[in-house]
């Protein structure tokens, strides 16, 4: 069942993937992010961070309040290179 529950839709990370990461000892969201790749796709965790945090808390028996979110990275939302580059310069 847990293999069919997708927590991170950008990177296809399942509940089973997260449970496996916790079983291997990756207990913080930063570590689980690195081991599973969750939160590294186009949504950058906006859709999945809470779901994965719940799964990590459940699998590790940790109080969810002790789980810090991973560092959020700029840009705030996906931004085209052309926009960042600005107008073409001669």
């Amino acid at each position: 069942m847990s293999r069919k529950v997708i927590l991170c839709r950008c990177e296809d990370v399942t509940l089973a993937d997260v449970q496996r990461a916790v079983k291997l000892g990756y207990a913080d969201l930063e570590e689980v992010k690195r081991y599973t790749g969750f939160g590294t796709g186009p949504c950058q965790g906006k859709e999945c961070l809470r779901e994965v945090a719940c799964a990590v808390a459940q699998a590790s028996g940790r109080d969810p309040a002790t789980l810090a979110p991973f560092t959020s990275r700029p840009p705030l939302s996906p931004t085209a290179l052309g926009v960042l580059a600005g107008p073409a310069r001669k």
Partner: peptide
Amino acid sequence: LTTMARGLTEIMPRLAQVKVVRQW
């Protein structure tokens, strides 16, 4: 971000439409 975006779109102009999701 802006330096990299200028550099990338200069050598591969088609990348102008591609979106950056993360920097670190």
